[in-house]
Simulated scan of single mutants.
Amino acid sequence: MKSLGIVEYRSIALGLQAADSMVKAADIKLLISQVVCPGKYIILFTGKLSSVKAALEVAAKPPLDTVLIDTYLLGNPDESLIPALYGACEKGNPEAVGIIEGYSVASIVGIADEIVKTSPTKLIEIRMARGMTGKAFALFSGELAAVQASMEKAKGALLENGMYLHSAVIPHPDPQIWEAL
């Protein structure tokens, strides 16, 4: 995967229209194009960087811009990102677990990518708005200090764009919690 684009709308109708316009305008491949709670529409797609940028430009044109919640462009996404969206990652080190929760799927996916690229933490899972009133969250594991630093960094980044909700670090999670992840 060369580049990954993420778009999030608060309209199902215009979200689906946007997905169609994007694939017609740029050489991209849809990975996810679906409805999530509460009536949001998310689109994740891949392609060459120039194609992904072109699709993101289409995604923000009128009238789509009136229902656009968030977008994110990842130039070289971490290889664990897509498996994390499906809950298919290895859990890593059980010394600590970090959870970052936000209002935007696009922002959570973007910050998850940044964290795993810049820290010795491991991405466990990303959950995208289904059954969570539109929220999203990402789970990480690793050594306590690394997880704590990563959650502070993620919190700061999400606060900047108004998408932060909560975060937590669980040192030495109980085996029942670890298995439930």
Rank of each mutant, 00 (worst) to 15 (best):
M1S: 12
K2E: 15
S3C: 11
S3A: 15
L4G: 06
I6F: 12
I6N: 01
V7G: 00
V7R: 02
E8I: 11
E8M: 06
Y9Q: 05
Y9N: 02
R10A: 13
S11N: 10
L14K: 10
G15P: 00
L16K: 11
Q17V: 14
A18I: 09
A19N: 02
D20P: 03
A26E: 07
D27N: 15
D27F: 08
I28F: 11
I28S: 09
K29T: 14
L31Q: 10
G39M: 04
I43T: 14
L44G: 09
L44R: 08
T46D: 06
T46S: 15
T46M: 06
G47V: 01
K48F: 04
L49F: 13
S50V: 14
E57M: 06
A60N: 13
P63I: 05
D65F: 07
T66K: 11
I69D: 00
I69L: 15
I69Q: 07
D70P: 02
Y72M: 12
L74V: 14
L74R: 03
G75S: 12
N76T: 12
S80Y: 09
I82S: 02
P83Y: 11
P83R: 10
P83A: 13
A84D: 08
A84E: 04
L85E: 04
Y86V: 04
Y86D: 05
E90A: 14
G92Y: 00
N93M: 01
E95L: 04
E95I: 01
E95Q: 08
E95S: 08
A96E: 09
V97K: 05
G98N: 01
I99V: 15
I100H: 04
I100Y: 01
G102M: 11
S104P: 06
V105K: 00
V105G: 02
I108H: 01
V109K: 08
E114G: 06
E114N: 12
E114D: 13
T118I: 05
P120M: 02
L123V: 09
I124V: 15
E125F: 01
E125S: 14
I126S: 00
I126C: 03
M128P: 07
G131I: 13
T133W: 07
K135R: 11
A136K: 01
F140S: 04
S141Q: 12
S141R: 04
G142P: 11
G142I: 08
E143P: 05
E143R: 15
A145G: 06
A146H: 10
V147N: 06
Q148D: 10
A149I: 08
S150I: 10
S150L: 02
A154N: 07
A154T: 04
A154F: 02
G156W: 01
L158C: 03
L159Y: 00
E160W: 13
E160T: 15
N161F: 03
G162K: 07
S167P: 03
I170E: 03
P171V: 02
P173I: 09
D174R: 04
D174L: 11
D174Y: 07
D174K: 09
Q176R: 11
Q176Y: 07
Q176G: 01
I177D: 01
W178T: 08
E179I: 06
